[in-house]
């Protein structure tokens, strides 16, 4: 029971890169099988065709986070019902590079793609946080762009606001060199936004957030239809 909970805790850290949501919340974890110190994670996706590249990232991350548990001796990750199940399961279980698992069909590794989607997730989280701050009159626009990371951490926020802040700062730290990480609301390289730029900037990051959320609704609906889960429809 204890081990099960620990594994679940680690799975909460694994996000679908395109949707920026944890796998268990998306319903992507089919089951976990724990036999002494051997762990097997079985996961599933909304379609047979979902990008193998993103599936590979998820499978790698499952392996990475679950292996942080010091009692775990072996991990098997198994993606089911997918056009590339075999290549992904074999590759990730053996710790292979993506390009070696898809010989001749890929044109590079996944690092660039990971970074691209970290940036998208960063902007989507930033949009939610900034909207929360502005819409609840916690700060005005001038204060938002002048805010430092330390000041943001000290703001007295509601439970919802604090959770948006935490999620945002995690992503910001992943992306930025500490020296660039002075101001709270910046672009993905740590550059400050000017008051003149802010309205256009906000429209830009909003469309990133909307796109990710729209996609999330799509994927949840498809997963529900595919596995006959009780959905909204």
């Amino acid at each position: 029971m204890q081990k099960e909970q620990e594994v679940q805790g680690k799975l909460q850290k694994v996000h679908d890169p395109e949707l920026d949501q944890p796998l268990p919340e998306l319903g992507f974890i089919d089951r976990t099988i724990i036999d002494e110190n051997d762990v097997e994670i079985v996961f599933r996706l909304p379609t047979y065709w979902c990008s193998p590249n993103f599936a590979y990232i998820m499978a790698e991350d499952i392996r990475l986070y679950v292996s942080e548990l010091d009692w775990v001796e072996s991990i098997k990750v198994r993606l089911i019902d997918h056009s590339a199940s075999e290549e992904i399961n074999e590759g990730v279980t053996r710790g292979r590079k993506f390009s070696n698992s898809f010989n001749g069909q890929s044109d590079g590794e996944l690092e660039g793609l990971r970074r691209k989607f970290q940036i998208k997730a960063f902007y989507a989280r930033q949009d939610r946080l900034v909207r929360h701050l502005l819409n609840n009159d916690l700060l005005d626009e001038k204060q938002v762009i002048a805010l430092t990371v330390d000041q943001l951490k000290c703001l007295n926020l509601s439970w919802e606001g604090a959770s948006l802040r935490e999620k945002y700062l995690v992503k910001k730290q992943e992306l930025m060199h500490p020296e660039a990480n002075v101001y709270a609301i910046t672009d993905h390289e740590g550059k400050k936004i000017s008051i003149e730029e802010l309205p256009g900037y906000m429209f830009g990051i909003k469309s990133t957030r909307l796109s990710m959320e729209f996609n999330g609704h799509y994927c949840r609906g498809l997963l529900e239809a595919r596995y006959h889960l009780s959905g909204k429809n």
Partner: peptide
């Protein structure tokens, strides 16, 4: 839009 088995480039 939604597509089939794109590989590592973002299809």
């Amino acid at each position: 839009g939604p597509t089939i088995t794109p590989l590592n480039r973002d299809a």
